[in-house]
Computed example of a mutant assay.
Amino acid sequence: MGEPPVFDEQWVQAARYTETDRRPRRRPAGPQPWRAWTPPPPPRPRRMPAAIVIVAVLALVVLASFTLHKSRSTPQQAQPAQAQPTQAQPAQAAPSSAPPPAVPTAPAGQTLSWKSATEMPDGPDPNDPRVFAELKVGTCIAQAANLRTAAVVPCSGPHTDEVDLVRDLTAEFPTTPDNRQIDRLNTTLCPGAVRDWTGGRDGRYSSGYLWQFQNGVPGQAVRGFVCTAQLSGHGPFTGTLHHAAA
């Protein structure tokens, strides 16, 4: 017999595959996943450095202080005041500073045919058509200062007006005349009538008028216009203005 073969350990180590590699591997018991994957943990939040936080807080404090100071130092625009409804107060008449109308006086050396009076007598109302129909040239009338009341009075006592012209309006106006037509009658008739009554043009005397116009049968209804002579201040007097300026 020949000699046993020599076992070359270096050759065995240099082999590409070994017997161990060729042995079948045991599979683990039970099903196993192909791959086991665990998600990575979430990233940790970054913390803001303490220095940045402090700077931000200080900046907010400074900004708030500046805004407050500016609002206090800036003048606010005044809002227009809303008018409050007020109850209207009745107007009170202020005392008049104007002097009362001057009483006409006679020039030196001339005697007047009349004299100023203070009292006003009472009598029939010339606004009554029956009384108005009885008016004639020379009739005397006492009219109140407010021009609301009047009375036919004797010429021997105080009065304010003396009738110097009477005119019938029946033929001239078929219907009631308006204020414009009455003013035209006054302007046309009364200034001349007072001059004829007083005897001349004199600023101490002026004219007035009354009128009535009834609806009714012509000739029976009272329809007339009357001019009067009076003092320029329309004050009461005694005596007469007839030929007072002559």
Rank of each mutant, 00 (worst) to 15 (best):
P4V: 02
P4S: 06
Q10H: 07
W11T: 12
R16C: 10
T18L: 14
T18C: 11
D21A: 09
R23V: 09
P24S: 09
P24K: 10
P33L: 10
W34T: 11
R35Y: 09
A36Y: 13
P42I: 03
P42Y: 04
P43W: 05
R44H: 14
R44F: 09
P45N: 03
P45Y: 03
R47P: 05
R47G: 07
M48N: 09
A50Y: 07
A50L: 13
V53M: 12
V53T: 13
I54R: 14
V57F: 09
L58N: 06
A59F: 07
V61D: 04
V61Y: 03
A64K: 02
K70Y: 05
S71G: 09
R72G: 08
S73H: 10
A81Y: 05
A83D: 11
A83N: 10
P85M: 04
A88M: 05
Q92W: 06
Q92H: 08
S96Q: 15
P99E: 05
A102K: 14
A102T: 08
P104S: 02
P104L: 05
T105Q: 13
S113Q: 10
K115P: 04
A117H: 07
A117Q: 02
M120L: 15
P121G: 02
D122S: 15
G123R: 02
P124A: 11
D125G: 07
N127L: 14
D128I: 05
P129C: 04
R130E: 13
V131W: 07
A133Y: 06
V137M: 02
G138N: 01
G138V: 01
T139F: 01
A142P: 03
A144P: 06
A145M: 09
R148T: 11
A150N: 07
A150Y: 03
V153N: 06
P154W: 03
T160H: 06
L165S: 12
L169T: 03
L169I: 01
T170L: 00
A171M: 04
P174K: 11
P174W: 04
T175P: 04
T176M: 12
D178N: 15
D178C: 06
N179H: 13
I182P: 04
L185V: 01
N186E: 15
N186K: 15
L189P: 02
G192W: 00
D196P: 02
W197L: 01
T198D: 00
G200K: 03
R204Y: 05
R204E: 00
Y205W: 10
Y205T: 01
S207I: 05
L210H: 10
Q212Y: 06
N215T: 12
N215P: 06
V217M: 11
V217K: 14
Q220M: 11
Q220K: 11
V222I: 10
G224C: 03
C227R: 00
A229Y: 00
Q230I: 06
L231R: 07
S232F: 03
H234V: 10
H234K: 15
P236A: 05
P236C: 01
F237N: 05
A245M: 02
